[in-house]
Design a protein around this nucleic acid. Structure first.
Lengths: 410, 410
DNA sequence: TTGAAAGCGCTAACAC
DNA sequence: GTGTTAGCGCTTTCAA
């Protein structure tokens, strides 16, 4: 018994074999296979039978060469091992699969060179579409895509020019919600560990953080309270360690993605400190473990699956010929409140004081050295109670700002 | 300024354009591009210059059609959103990328139909290689792959016939280590939530669990202590709920993968119980959150990245013409001990008794109703102290075994 | 060492 | 409606 799909000569079964077997021309076979309406049903049936009998499977390469269009999408993302992106990938995969497209997976590691290579690959493969979660894509390649009629959409992150369709989450609003929540819970010395500022996600989350502070009449206690991480666990850990080593520490922190939150949490545990009494945390991304870590994490949940699915639909629509103006789908994140931002109380604070282990610090652990509740502004409220903290320079000046203190960007 | 890679006629730059520009034949261009040694260096240089100037990018489709071989691998896995598989994917991607292959991502959801579709796709795409983490692949398709000279290797899970190269983890040994550890820590009424028994991972982990019990002279307290889950979070939660609803509960459980462990943990938390005093847990897979969940999870850590990388190397070797007998690379898992399996002590047990919330149970929560340490056999020891527990039928018979109690397979 | 040319399997323009 | 056929861009045999 010879294998299905292999003809007598040992080669692959081709459309010619099918045409012979069905007693029709290759054109007719092609028409049947591509659902061309104007074929005699009787012939179509004969063709179908021949296809089945021979186990014929059309060559994608030949089809691609002929049509200059592979039924394939390139999916270019920074990191498949980040659950945020894999959830996105699932959304994309589901839409792609049901529309008959396959995905080439391209992992850039946020490396511009790899990103460039993969964009080149997409061109060489004649993919019909590209879904890009950009790091810093070469604009000339984007242009070439467009001039070659390759459909391309962005997801998760915008590219500066804004010349493409895309699906995003409102990161500014997400970060603002997080800050409002922290303030409402009585935290008023806030820090932010954000992502690389060459990503819109990193920038927008920081922008939201800063604008919410301002709107509430607060300002940053210390420039060193803004940390630029790398969206990786190690970066989160490193930046949290930096925050903890400050002589005057924040009482709460917004961490701009899931992996960095994990790293930050590890740094806190390693320092023998407690969340939220020593440091409250709001993360970004509601990963599956958030509810069972200690303590359960408050976070800004992103609809990652839908983000992917929406971007795939945008792409599909372009491939199907839609030629209107650019569309940007903006999805709304949700604040999920758990225990990592439990109401601030000096009682709680005092109870958890850890002896000995803490890095040498003046103001910390003392109970009410700060956080006296004065700045506890209502979530909706405008700037009614400007915190005088910016002026308490006696403490401020002890901040370790020298070496790595002030680095608003990196 | 026209886009790179587009010639005057608006079409793509082809090998013919390059040949003209360099004043050579297409054959020579092809030779240069493919590193054929016997070309005049002067000509080669001219060709290279033309390539650069024109921004020429070879058409993969044409090449594939001609050679019947796409520089592409199909990567067929059950679930991209499972970190175990994404870590594997990273290992595969890194090897593939540096060898110049791209990956088509195929997500089967452990669905035989999707798996079949993707294997068909791999054939139609003329991929040169397939890496398969099998669910229940159609053997005839595997045969067809082989007869078409498509290289194929398995990863993570074996297919029954064992006719393919593959990279695996020693799951039996991993489960055995876990059981030995639990026994050494004083737990002696062990349960296991394993995966689908049509996967070797699900079967092997259960086998290791059972064989380690036997080797230590123990047997299963109750057939209902073996639960067949689905490797998903929801399944872990469901099966843990089932365990918790038994009138006589286990004091420790081995859960056969990361997502189910998460689900199991959630079920325990939801029931108001504590780990490990009410139920110790050993999970499989050391996911990044294991160290910060509450309590930190003991687990059998798998080298997932290396698993992927090894399978990719096996594939590469086959593609490069290796034709020896089948090779199976077996990697060794590591037990990582954390607090979810802290030494069993009745003191601990009593302290954490939760009032009221517990489901109605006779034997539980009472302190020393069991776990008196009698069966605490040494990790290395043979079966010296057979637990008499299998005979305490008075309690046994109250086990809720009726509807879903006894289901060794599903 | 280099070039000419056939042909991989398919689609679509054109002819009937 | 159906068939004939050119040609997508490349590799590779064969001849020079």
């Amino acid at each position: 018994m010879r294998a299905r799909g292999v003809n007598q000569t040992g080669g692959t079964t081709t459309i010619i074999d099918v045409a012979h077997a069905a007693g029709v021309s290759t054109a007719t076979v092609s028409r049947v296979l591509n659902g061309d309406a104007r074929v005699n049903p009787a012939l179509a049936a004969r063709v179908q039978r021949a296809v089945t009998k021979l186990g014929y499977r059309p060559s994608r390469a030949a089809r691609t060469l002929r049509t200059q269009q592979a039924r394939v999408w390139a999916l270019i993302i920074p990191d498949v091992s980040n659950p945020h992106f894999t959830d996105m990938v699932r959304g994309i995969e589901d839409v792609a699969y049901s529309a008959g497209y396959s995905l080439i997976l391209c992992n850039t590691d946020a490396d511009a060179e790899k990103e460039r290579t993969y964009l080149e690959l997409a061109l060489a493969e004649h993919v019909v579409g590209v879904i890009l979660a950009p790091t810093s894509p070469d604009p000339s390649l984007i242009e070439e895509m467009l001039s070659r009629k390759v459909s391309i959409v962005t997801v998760d992150r915008r590219i500066s020019s804004g010349m493409l369709d895309g699906a995003f989450v409102n990161n500014v609003a997400g970060a603002e919600q997080a800050v409002d929540h922290l303030l409402a819970r009585g935290y008023c010395h806030l820090a932010c560990i954000t992502g690389p500022t060459d990503t819109t996600t990193g920038r927008d989350r920081l922008d939201g953080f800063m604008s919410a502070l301002r709107r509430n009449g607060l300002e940053l206690d210390d420039p060193a309270f803004v940390r630029i991480g790398d969206f990786r666990e190690s970066g989160g850990q490193r930046e949290m360690e930096a925050l903890l080593s400050l002589s005057v520490r924040p009482d709460a922190v917004l961490v701009a993605n899931n992996l960095m939150t994990l790293g930050a949490l590890k740094a806190i545990v390693a320092a023998g400190l407690e969340v939220p009494s020593d440091m409250a945390i709001v993360g970004f991304d509601d990963s599956s473990w958030n509810a069972v870590v200690h303590p359960p994490l408050t976070c800004v949940a992103q609809p990652a699956y839908d983000l992917g699915a929406e971007s795939a639909r945008l792409l599909l629509s372009r491939i199907d010929g839609h030629s209107g103006p650019n569309r940007e789908v903006m999805l709304v994140p949700t604040l999920r409140i758990r225990e990592s931002t439990a109401e601030r109380s000096s009682a709680t604070h005092a109870r958890h004081t850890v002896p000995g282990i803490r890095p040498s610090v003046d103001d910390a652990g003392g109970g009410n050295g700060r956080g006296d509740g004065k700045a506890r502004s209502p979530q909706t409220g405008a700037a009614t109670v400007p915190t005088p903290r910016g002026a308490t320079s006696a403490l401020q000046n002890r901040t370790t700002r020298s070496t790595k203190g002030a680095r608003p960007t990196r």
